[in-house]
Design a binder for these strands. Structure first.
Length: 306
DNA sequence: ATAAGGCCTAAGAG
DNA sequence: ACTCTTAGGCCTT
C-alpha cells in the first residue's frame, strides 16, 4: 500500500470533501459506511473509488487501470491510501489545484451566489472519468441523488472488475465493453427503468468505437455539447453535466429543475425560451469562464434547502 | 424548430 | 395504510 498526505491549508480555498463528493456531481465514489446521501459522514470517514481503464482521458497523471484510491480528511490533512502512487490522480479527481479563492472572487456579486459560496466553502468541482460520468448522468434523469448513486454502484458491482485491496473487495466502474454485454432486461431488473436501453445503447456506441465522450474535449463548448447529445439518453442537460464534471468545461451551466427555479426567482431576464439561449444568458450572468462553479454552488445550495 | 405525451420506480407528501 | 406527486429529462411523434 502506498500512502500520502496533502495539507489542506496549502490548497487555495480549502477543501470540503463531504460536499465535494456528496453534492450530486460524482456517483463514482463510495463512503466506507455505505450511507452516502442519507446521513452526514462521521469525522474522518474514508471515501474510495477505482480508477479504471477509462481513466481520465487527456490526463497522463491519472493512475493506471484498476487502482483503488481511498481518501479522508483528518487533522487538517487530506490523507490518501492506494495500490499505487495516487497523488496525481487525487489532485486531478478532486481538482485540488483549482484556485478556489480566485474562482469565488471572480463570480458575480449577487445575493444568491454569495450566500451559496459562503454556505459551502471548500466545495470543489470533480473531474470524473468521462465514460463513468456519461453513464451516471444518463441514469440521473428524473431521479434522486441517492438512487442515482445506488444505480451506478449496482452497475459497478454487476459488470465491473473486482479489485482486492487491504483485505476488501472494490468494484471498478465497468468498461464500455463490459457494460455493452448487459441487456435491457437485465438493467431493468436492476432498477434502471426506462434508462436501461439508453445505457446499453450508449455503452455499445463507445465499445464499438463509434463515438467516445472524451472526443468532445477537443471541441468548442457548444459544439462539444452538441457532440455528446448523439449518445442515447443524452440531451442538453446531461451533456452539460458531462462537460462540467468530466471534461473540464468550467463554463458549462447544466439547466436542471433547481437552476430553472433559480432563474425564475433570481435571474428572470435570463429566461430566453430555449435551452441554448437561456444557458448562454445565465453563463454570462454567472461569470462566464467559471460559470459552472457558480452553477454547482447554486444547485447544491437550493437542493439542500438552505 | 418547437410542443405534447409517455416513461420506470421508490421515497415523500397529503 | 393508500394514493398522488415528485425526482438534477429524454425520446418519439
Amino acid at each position: 500500500m502506498e500512502t500520502g498526505t496533502i495539507p489542506i491549508d496549502e490548497l487555495t480555498g480549502g477543501l470540503d470533501l463531504y460536499r465535494t463528493l456528496e453534492s450530486g456531481q460524482s456517483y463514482l465514489w463510495q463512503r466506507e459506511d455505505g450511507e452516502m446521501y442519507t446521513e452526514t459522514p462521521a469525522p474522518g470517514a474514508w471515501y474510495s473509488t477505482v480508477v479504471g481503464s477509462d481513466a481520465v482521458s487527456g490526463n497522463s497523471d491519472a493512475a493506471a487501470a484498476g487502482d483503488v484510491i481511498r481518501v479522508r480528511v483528518r487533522d487538517g490533512n487530506l490523507e490518501w491510501e492506494s495500490t499505487t502512487d495516487a497523488e496525481p490522480a487525487v489532485r486531478r479527481l478532486l481538482r485540488l489545484d483549482d484556485d478556489l479563492e480566485a474562482i469565488v472572487a471572480a463570480g458575480p456579486d449577487d445575493s444568491l451566489l454569495r450566500e451559496a459560496y459562503e454556505a459551502h466553502r471548500g466545495m470543489r468541482l470533480v473531474a470524473d472519468p468521462p465514460f463513468g460520468c456519461l453513464i451516471s448522468f444518463i441514469c440521473s434523469a428524473q431521479m434522486r441523488v441517492g438512487r442515482i448513486h445506488t444505480m451506478v454502484s449496482t452497475l459497478a458491482r454487476e459488470y465491473g472488475d473486482k479489485i482486492e485491496f487491504d483485505g476488501e473487495t472494490y468494484h471498478a466502474f465497468p468498461t464500455p465493453k463490459q457494460l455493452a454485454t448487459a441487456t435491457e432486461a437485465e438493467l431493468r431488473e436492476l432498477g434502471l427503468g426506462y434508462r436501461a436501453p439508453y445505457v446499453v445503447r450508449t455503452a455499445e456506441m463507445v465499445a464499438t468505437g463509434e463515438a467516445h465522450p472524451a472526443e468532445a474535449q477537443n471541441l468548442e463548448y457548444e459544439d462539444a455539447r452538441e457532440y455528446l447529445t448523439r449518445f442515447v439518453g443524452v440531451g442538453d442537460k446531461v451533456a452539460d453535466c458531462v462537460l462540467l464534471f468530466a471534461l473540464d468545461f468550467d463554463e458549462a451551466v447544466p439547466l436542471d429543475t433547481w437552476l430553472k427555479s433559480a432563474i425564475e426567482e433570481y435571474y428572470p431576464d435570463c429566461d430566453r425560451g430555449t435551452y441554448a439561449d437561456t444557458s448562454r444568458a445565465l453563463r454570462e450572468r454567472l461569470g462566464g469562464e467559471y460559470a459552472g462553479y457558480s452553477q454547482t454552488y447554486i444547485f447544491h445550495h437550493l437542493r439542500t434547502g438552505a
